[in-house]
């Protein structure tokens, strides 16, 4: 049985009818059409589906859509501001931190969470903070560089 939930995504309030066995990632991608959130493994291993849920980055494939009722979510589409790209997005572009791009949305959101919690993270904290996001293309170093360049 579908049930109506209320959820705020990227400052927009939605009412969505979701099934009990629907995951948050599927709701975001297929019901809200926000396809920047990717589905890489469905089992919480790769981090491509990372979203920020009430201020905390999580694997949205491990959350049921109904559990998002009444909560606030930021997806990759909500990272840029009115003035354009977020500094992290700019840094990812400039430092060559993007290759196939499939991990990039999740990676940007995890990196953003690191910086939101600590504007001047150490390299170890950056590595730790993006360690839930697998990337097979870059070997991570240019991503770490990008995050470092935005940190103070």
């Amino acid at each position: 049985m579908k049930k109506l939930i209320r959820v705020t995504v990227n400052d927009v309030r939605y009412e969505v009818a979701v099934k009990p066995n629907q995951t948050l990632v599927d709701m975001i991608r297929y019901d809200l059409g926000l396809t920047g959130t990717k589905n890489g493994c469905g089992e919480g291993d790769c981090g491509a589906c990372t979203v920020i849920l009430d201020g905390t980055p999580v694997n949205s494939c491990l959350v049921l859509a109904m559990q998002a009722d009444g909560r606030t979510i930021t997806t990759i589409e909500g990272v840029e501001g009115e003035k354009g790209l977020h500094p992290l997005q700019k840094a990812f572009i400039e430092k060559g931190a993007v290759q196939c791009g499939f991990c990039t949305p999740g990676m940007v959101l995890s990196a953003k969470s690191v910086l939101d919690e600590n504007p001047a993270p150490s390299e170890e904290e950056i590595r730790e903070g993006i360690s839930g996001n697998l990337c097979r293309c870059t070997g991570y170093l240019q991503i770490i560089d990008a995050v470092k360049s935005v940190g103070k």
Binding site: G44, T56, P57, V63, S110, N133
Partner: peptide
């Protein structure tokens, strides 16, 4: 335990 993302859940 797990990755930082998993630890958040």
């Amino acid at each position: 335990l797990g990755s930082c993302l998993v630890r958040n859940l």
